[in-house]
């Protein structure tokens, strides 16, 4: 419990920053919706002038962009990108931070098992993600209610928004796995930015080319907000993939971390 609380305190500032930024971003984007909705015909006309591949790449659906949930689904892809970076950074730094800050010797010579350390840190990370998502959801729902002309489709809003948590879990588990393999990660942000953007580019390619196989390679395609707002359901195969990958990566991290040598400073 002491390690868990210590970790929470350590991530307090960054959690607040991330939550406020995500909430602020969605509020900014959604506050533009009324203006857009008023002149939706002109807007769609302009968009229609773009090559189809560009519209696809950026997940713009001409049929639904004028609807509240349609516009929200489009904007949400950027939120997901930011959320992915937060989660990947979190996963990468959880265990590697102790080596980087040279506190590993302090922590690991205490009467505590490696499993207990991973569990405590993982619980803290999960708490951080839950807080971020709760903050985001609240802000997102409030702004949608505010700008929506009709009643907001709560189910769709929730179905789309909660996928940020799922994608974040994937990135956090991935970051954790990478961090236990690496001997030392000097700087977390370049690694997490690089990885998440790489997946985002695969995502764009996959959308633009309609390549079904590419979709499996990037978590950003697992819960496609456009599809969700049109079909009101998740794709089973990707739900299963997520449900398999996250526990597997976490389990592997436990196993590897238990065998890992903690090197001197």
């Amino acid at each position: 419990m002491n390690v868990f609380l210590r970790e929470l305190r350590m991530y307090r500032a960054s959690t607040i920053t991330w939550t406020v930024s995500l909430a602020g971003t969605i509020m900014l984007f959604m506050s533009m919706y009324p203006a857009l909705a008023r002149e939706i015909d002109d807007f769609v006309q302009i968009l229609a002038g773009f090559p189809e591949v560009v519209l696809k790449a950026f997940s713009i659906s001409l049929d639904t962009i004028g609807l509240l949930t349609g516009y929200y689904a489009y904007v949400f892809t950027f939120i997901m990108l930011a959320g992915g970076i937060q989660a990947m950074s979190l996963g990468l730094s959880l265990l590697s931070k102790e080596s980087r800050d040279k506190t590993a010797d302090f922590l690991m010579t205490k009467p505590i098992t490696r499993n207990e350390i991973v569990t405590a840190k993982l619980s803290a990370a999960l708490t951080v993600l839950l807080i971020t998502n709760a903050g985001y959801l609240t802000a997102g729902y409030a702004i949608c209610r505010l700008v929506g002309t009709s009643d907001v489709n709560l189910k769709l809003f929730f179905m789309i928004s909660i996928t940020m948590l799922f994608v974040q879990l994937i990135f956090m588990a991935l970051g954790l796995l990478v961090s236990v393999f690496a001997r030392k990660i000097k700087n977390v942000l370049p690694v997490s930015l690089g990885t998440v953007f790489a997946f985002y580019i695969i995502n764009i390619l996959s959308s633009a080319t309609d390549d079904a196989k590419l979709r499996y390679l990037t978590p950003f395609q697992y819960f496609d907000p456009n599809r969700i707002q049109m079909t009101a359901q998740y794709e089973t195969v990707f739900v299963v993939l997520t449900a398999l990958f996250v526990p597997a990566a976490i389990l592997a991290s436990y196993i590897i971390y238990n065998k890992k040598d903690i090197h001197a400073l």
């Binding site: 210590r6 800050d101 040279k102 302090f106 010579t109 009467p111 505590i112 098992t113 400073l265």
Partner: peptide, 20 residues
């Protein structure tokens, strides 16, 4: 029995760095 043993060990490393 590492964790159990470490309950009774005090360790002072050559270089000390602690949480910011």
């Amino acid at each position: 029995h590492g964790p159990e043993i470490r309950r009774q060990i005090g360790y002072l490393p050559s270089e000390v760095f602690y949480y910011d």
